[in-house]
């Protein structure tokens, strides 16, 4: 059984691609066959985050148009044998993606026996975002603890409940999960940032992962290594936990959500 998971958010810059890359790696590391597809037509970026930008020969739109086979376009990850990337096209043609075309590619991946297909959605609520979520079984909504991101996430949840194949055909709902990124326990403790409970409360949805704000995320993207592969990084461990929860381990406690303990000096003088 193949599971199609969309990684979406509405707002840009919250960490969709970072999350797609890390979840894909994390799932593939467990031996599952994973394909991760960049739906951001015109603004290809997943390849850079995955570190395979120089190996892109054919892209998603080429496959849809029949310019090449799916096998030719899938880029096999150099770190994990069971992980494949399908790059976005850089065409400016907004109609390059069609529902039928997307369906065709997904069907071929399903027939090929992939366990997971991750759809990395573009920002916004236009065609690319719509098609990225349309055939999803599950959705990971990436949200920053910040007003505009939370509001946009709620918009996206509305779309997941109405503009997906599952919603239109009246089948079982798309399973939705929240994933908080750029979380700062220190700022939450100071009352400067929305807490996990606040976001949960406003959006009425459970949280599948909380990724702490971390300098490692930038270093990872600089290097073209999905952050989950960075050893000794809190962000990597937090993504690892999110993957375990995606795979069904619901009892796993959240880590990195409490303010780090301060020493005596810091407690007296603040910091």
């Amino acid at each position: 059984m193949t599971e199609i998971i969309v990684v979406t958010s509405g707002k840009g810059g919250v960490g969709k691609t970072t999350t797609s890359a890390s979840l894909a790696c994390g799932l593939a590391r467990t031996g599952k066959r994973v394909a991760v597809i960049d739906f951001d037509i015109g603004l290809r970026n997943l390849d850079l985050i995955m570190g395979c930008e120089r190996r892109v020969v054919y892209d998603f739109v080429n496959v849809i148009n029949g310019d090449c086979t799916l096998k030719q376009a899938l880029i096999k990850d150099k770190r994990i044998d069971t992980l494949f990337v399908l790059a976005a096209s850089q065409t400016r043609d907004k109609d390059a993606l069609t529902a039928e075309g997307v369906r065709k590619v997904l069907d071929e991946l399903i027939a090929d026996g992939f366990d997971f297909i991750l759809c990395d959605s573009p920002a916004g609520i236009e065609k690319g975002a719509h098609l990225a979520m349309y055939y999803a079984d599950r959705a990971v909504v990436v949200v920053n603890p910040e007003v505009s991101s939370v509001r946009d996430s709620d918009r996206i949840l509305g779309l997941l409940a109405s503009k997906t194949e599952r919603a239109e055909k009246g089948g079982t709902k798309v399973r939705e999960h929240l994933l908080l990124t750029r979380y700062s326990p220190t700022r939450v403790a100071a009352g400067e940032m929305l807490s996990i409970a606040d976001v949960k409360d406003i959006l009425g949805l459970d949280v599948i992962g909380v990724i702490p704000e971390s300098p490692q995320v930038l270093s990872a993207s600089n290097a073209g290594t999905p952050v989950i592969m960075m050893d000794e990084s809190d962000a990597a461990a937090a993504y690892g936990d999110a993957v375990a929860r995606l795979l069904g381990d619901e009892s796993l406690p959240m880590r990195f959500i409490d303010e780090p303990k301060k020493g005596f000096f810091a407690r007296v003088f603040g910091g």
């Binding site: 910040e146 007003v147 939370v150 509001r151 939450v188 100071a190 009352g191 400067e192 940032m193 929305l194 807490s195 606040d198 409360d201 406003i202």
Partner: peptide, 10 residues
């Protein structure tokens, strides 16, 4: 602290 304000507005 501004988080409460954010929460109420949201």
């Amino acid at each position: 602290p501004s988080a409460n304000l954010a929460k109420e507005r949201l």
